[in-house]
């Protein structure tokens, strides 16, 4: 019976190999083993959304994923998403609208909002609110966040035309 596992996976486009404890969740793996502190542990029981990251292309709660299960997986964190430039416009919109205050929810919020940009380009304000409804923000009234996502969707659609 092994309590430690060698895993090799791709994180933000880089291949990493680590020996992890079986009880390590993905967020502690990212933060403690890889030094990627942009992902946050807000509740560690799957409710607040601060730990939202991508695994194999889809958003997940990082605190509800066993790091040991990710051998061969592809993980994208806020650091990788930012460096890729995929959501630079969304991030600019967050800045322009002050859609982040303390910022602790923000990486998870951006990951969830990026999911809207990819999968729901025609989302309405109500649908944006619904899609982000699992990401807790205590500081803003959510309105600036919805504004930022909505304006990014609009700008992308206009850019396409």
């Amino acid at each position: 019976m092994s309590t430690r596992h060698d895993i090799t996976l791709t994180v933000n486009g880089e291949r990493v190999t680590r020996l992890v404890e079986a009880r390590r969740h993905l967020i502690d793996f990212l933060r403690l083993d890889l030094g990627l502190t942009g992902s946050h542990a807000g509740c560690e029981h799957g409710v607040c959304g601060a730990c939202t990251v991508r695994v194999d292309g889809e958003i997940v709660r990082g605190c509800l994923v066993l790091a040991a299960s990710l051998d061969g997986a592809e993980v994208t964190t806020i650091e990788g998403l930012s460096d890729s430039g995929e959501v630079a416009d969304l991030q600019d919109a967050f800045v322009a609208r002050n859609a982040a205050q303390c910022g602790f929810c923000t990486p998870g919020m951006v990951m969830a909002a990026a999911d809207i940009l990819r999968h729901h380009p025609d989302a309405t304000r109500a649908e944006i609110r619904e899609h982000l409804s699992g990401n807790y923000c205590r500081c803003t009234g959510y309105q600036a966040i919805v504004d930022a996502v909505e304006s990014t969707l609009t700008a992308r659609k206009e850019g396409v035309r």
Binding site: G46, E58, I59, R61, L64, D115, G134
Partner: peptide, 12 residues
């Protein structure tokens, strides 16, 4: 499905 938690949970 839409009643079940949130998108990130539904993905797992």
């Amino acid at each position: 499905v839409p009643y079940i938690a949130h998108p990130a949970i539904r993905n797992r």
